[in-house]
Design a binder for these strands. Structure first.
Length: 873
RNA sequence: GGGCGAUUAGCUCAGGGGGAGAGCGCUUCCUUGACACGGAAGAGGCCAGAGGUUCAAAUCCUCUAUCGCCCACCA
């Protein structure tokens, strides 16, 4: 027995029940012993601090569609979930919690603070994974991994040690990006640059011998405190006489040399530049080339330090103003120009970043980046869309060494110890207390960049460094789905780590999607107030509706605009499917046999038509899925199910009651639900299970529809198009004449060649769909015996409708005249084309022939319309 | 400064060398037995601009404009 379905689809009840059932049945669990080719998708590990936002909802909807289809296709499909400890982000969250209690992490001390973060994670850390279930995500939850799990920590440590031993990780005193609020180094890509208004300050540095010296220009006047040279271009005639001489650094009265360096642009500012090797990347390079002294003038908090003399203790921006004022007072501030320039901000907290010399750990990325780039160039890893590979390669080709140490407490501790005499020991195993005691060892206090550990995600989740069956089965993984904004942060690092450590790419395909934006294409952000919570949308419209609304716009690489009413529209589609399902179920005899082979039955033209259209939709949707074009798959299936199946086929067969019809209904619904399941898992599963009698059956592991080319039937498609045109034309006739719904029209039909059969077969349906009172076939237009008469010309027939008592004859004349004008315009257009000698000579013959036929057809139509008009006159 | 993308119906977007498409919105009509979360019929676009290639350009090429995004050591 099949269950009764409610009149309207109720997502909340269905979703909660089905998800619990799926999980209970362990339908998402992947096992190496399962049959099928391995297929793996790694969830882009969400931050443990995160809660589900629309960006996740898009990302997860795409992945779920990919993995569900793979599962149905018989792959041994694994979707690996987990969370990232997310160093700075999580530490900040817990520090804010502490601040409410009036405490800082320093009040607790390192050990207690880290313990506190763990407690926080236990309590509220993985909400996002729970929220993913609301969306229908079919991850193998048993396998969930956290990047600070013991095993993961060991893998990270092994990686660090290996790279160190290979000379690919080193400790260096270098210029890095320093965030004075987070009090940590950050890597280049964690710095966001914004254009800001600022000042270009011109300062005179007098010559040591009492001469005028030079004027330099700077946007950061306070950095002059750390200047150790002035540089000019070697070919600059204006300054050639000064090269090698000495000028006096104002305010601190330090003598510094004037040097010549190619880097200086003579056209910028005065053509002379102050050189601060400790606080500017360019100056740092100049300093290295000329062996200049480096003077760090700032503290960790970005205040001026002791090297800044009288300015020590001032915040850098206060110092900037004071320096300018003091220079002005001494007559050394030549002028100040307004200027917009690019300022780097910490991507995490937006504090202005300070370039600063510091002892940090670095990865020598060159050899790693080359392998990653080569893998993309070889096609071992492909980007979808392909254009995204270019930016990725450009970035890899110009990569600087990666600063991986962070001055934080939450994260993977760097396994390095320092002896009292400064020797560095990088150890695979912690030293014993005795060793620590004996050599006075002190562990490096820093932790690793979060991305260093997430670089290992595709294989450490599978058991690496052990050669586990999981690793052997699913590595390399299949598709990595992520926003293009993460390609540099994460994708590149996984590529480098995977190729270096396992000698294989971590994934064959990188599927990029865009950002979710609001209806106006604006980025969603709290400050704009246009953020929508996906859970609210799910509550209101259902998970399937949200998924459909996101995926129908998710062409690879493109941003996805979303507005609430679009989700609402998607809910209508879910409801449409639901009711189509209800209708099909209502037509089935109780306990009917669903295994009837529809292709072996005696089928009506509309049956062959819808099966042909089904096969066309299947092929198109499947191809779209295969290219990861979820938007095209979604829209193809929407149109098939709604416009063709519901609007035409269901309407056409309502009066029928035969096995062919019920079998076709079941077949189309069954296949349609399978095809839509990756996009709308809940409503499809509920209907499909009901259709198949419930119990243990599930669409989650049902077979993906196979190609059925024998169902393509162009003759049936042409026939049904003719019928549809007849219906549409009669409906339009009624609308044009403002006929009441109850008014019946009588039809005299002259079928065109080869169309009589389909019209005869469809008379009942046409009549029902267009309010026909009586229908009679006649052989020739001359046989029409009722006058005046209106005529409807279609591709399958000329239909005559006696007008007496039905319509206003003046209006009918007007209508005919409009149609005549339209037909004349068509003839004119086609004839113009045909009168072009080039067209006739060079265009393909079938194109020319088609154009000639159009002219003939429209001429014919004009003739007949004119006859009509004459009759009414 | 370099790169990439976009510019098509009121809005958001597909399409792509031979008669302009979808969803939503809008207009009119319809509570017809799956669905008013529905049905039917419509209105609405010189496909950003200028050149070029072609028998034929919304579509290919070049340039321009505007917008967006990435990258860059723009003192």
């Amino acid at each position: 027995m099949r269950a009764e379905l409610s009149k309207a689809y109720d997502p909340s009840e269905v979703e909660a029940r089905l998800y619990a059932w799926w999980e209970h049945r362990q339908l998402f669990d992947a096992d190496t012993t399962n049959e099928g080719e391995p297929f793996a998708v790694m969830l882009p590990l969400p931050n443990v601090t995160g809660s589900l936002h629309l960006g996740h909802a898009l990302d997860h909807s795409i992945q779920d569609a990919v993995i569900r289809r793979a599962r149905m296709m018989g792959y041994n499909a694994l979707w690996q979930p987990g969370t990232d400890h997310a160093g700075i982000a999580t530490q900040n969250v817990v520090e804010r919690e502490l601040a409410k209690e009036g405490l800082s992490r320093h009040d607790l001390g390192r050990e207690a603070f880290v313990e506190r973060v763990w407690q926080w994670r236990e309590a509220s850390g993985e909400t996002i994974l729970r929220q993913m279930r609301r969306l229908g995500a079919s991850c193998d939850w048993r396998r969930s991994v956290f990047t600070l799990d013991d095993h993961y920590v060991e893998a990270v440590r092994l990686t660090f040690c290996t790279l160190y031993e290979q000379g690919l990780i080193y400790r260096g005193y270098r210029l890095i990006n320093w965030c004075p609020r987070d009090m940590s180094a950050i890597s280049d890509i964690e710095v966001d640059h914004t254009e800001e208004r600022g000042e270009l300050v011109f300062i005179r540095y007098p010559a040591a011998d009492g001469g005028d010296g030079v004027v330099v220009a700077t946007t950061r006047a306070e950095t002059m405190l750390g200047d150790t040279a002035v540089a000019v271009h070697p070919d600059d005639e204006r300054y050639r006489h000064l090269v090698g001489s000495t000028v006096v650094l104002p305010l601190l009265d330090r003598e510094i040399p004037v040097i010549a360096d190619d880097h200086v642009d003579p056209a910028f500012g005065t053509g002379a530049v102050k050189v601060t090797p400790a606080h500017d990347p360019n100056d740092y390079e100049i300093g290295r080339r000329h062996d200049l002294e480096t003077i760090d003038v700032m503290t960790d908090e970005a205040r001026i330090n002791i090297n800044g003399g009288p300015y020590a203790g001032l915040d850098r921006f206060e110092a900037r103003e004071r320096v300018k004022a003091d220079l002005d007072q001494r007559g050394l501030l030549v002028r100040v120009e307004e200027r917009t320039h690019s300022v780097g901000h910490c991507s995490r907290c937006h504090t202005v970043v300070e370039p600063r010399l510091s002892d940090q750990w670095f990865v020598a990325v060159r050899p790693l980046a080359e392998r990653a780039a080569q893998a993309v160039r070889d096609g071992r890893t492909n980007f979808v869309p392909a254009r995204n590979a270019k930016g990725f390669l450009d970035w890899l080709d110009n990569l600087h060494d990666w600063c991986i140490s962070r001055q934080l407490w939450w994260g993977h501790r760097i396994p390095a110890w320092y002896t009292e005499d400064g020797e560095i020991l990088v150890l695979r195993e912690d030293p014993t207390p005795e060793e620590v005691e004996a050599r006075g060892l002190r562990q490096d206090p820093d932790v690793l960049d979060t991305w260093f550990s997430s670089a290992l995600w595709p294989f450490t989740t599978l058991g690496w460094p052990e050669q586990t069956p999981d690793l052997q089965t699913w590595y390399p993984t299949s598709v990595l789905v992520t926003g293009y904004d993460i390609n540099t942060f994460w994708v590149s690092r996984m590529m480098m780590a995977g190729l270096h450590l396992l000698d294989e790419v971590p994934f064959h395909t990188v599927l990029n999607h865009g950002l979710v934006r609001d209806r106006n294409g604006k980025k969603m952000s709290k400050s704009f107030g246009n953020v929508i919570d996906p859970l609210d949308l799910i509550d209101e419209y259902g998970a399937d509706a949200l998924r459909y609304a996101l995926l129908r716009a998710a062409a690879p690489g493109n941003d996805v605009p979303l507005a609430e009413e679009w989700v609402k529209g998607a809910r209508h589609f879910a409801n449409k499917l639901w009711n189509a399902g209800r209708f099909v179920l209502s037509q089935l005899p109780v306990d009917s046999d669903l295994s009837v082979d529809v292709d072996g039955l005696e089928l009506q033209p509309e049956d062959r038509w819808i099966l042909s259209r089904l096969e066309a939709a299947r092929a198109a949707a499947d191809e779209a899925y295969a290219c990861y074009d979820m938007a095209r798959a979604a829209q193809t299936l929407y149109h098939f199910m709604w416009d063709e199946f519901c609007d035409w086929y269901l309407e056409l067969v309502k009066q029928r009651d035969d096995t062919a019809m019920t079998s076709v209904l079941v077949t189309v619904l069954d296949v349609g639900l399978r095809l839509l399941h990756p996009i709308m898992p809940f409503v499809t599963e509920e209907l499909w299970r009901t259709l198949h009698g419930g119990g243990e059956v599930t669409l989650v592991r049902a077979q993906w529809p196979q190609a059925a080319p024998q169902r393509r039937d162009t003759a049936a498609e042409a026939q049904l198009e003719a019928l549809i045109q007849a219906v549409t034309a009669l409906r339009r006739f009624r609308a044009d004449h403002g006929l009441q719904p109850a008014a019946r029209v009588d039809v005299l039909a002259v079928p065109l060649d080869g169309r009589r059969d389909v019209l005869e077969a469809g008379v009942d349906a046409i009549s029902r769909l267009t309010g026909v009172g009586s229908w009679r076939f006649i052989d020739r237009a001359d046989d029409v015996d009722a006058h005046p008469v209106g005529k409807v010309v279609t591709a399958s027939a000329e239909l005559f409708v006696p007008l007496a008592g039905l319509v206003d004859l003046d209006e009918e004349r007007g209508r005919l005249e409009r149609e005549l004008a339209k037909a004349a315009a068509e003839v004119k257009r086609a004839e113009a084309k045909l009168s072009n000698e080039g067209f006739v000579a060079k265009a393909p013959t079938d194109v020319v022939q088609a154009e000639r036929e159009k002219v003939a057809d429209w001429r014919d139509a004009i003739e007949k319309l004119q006859a009509q008009l004459d009759e009414l006159a």
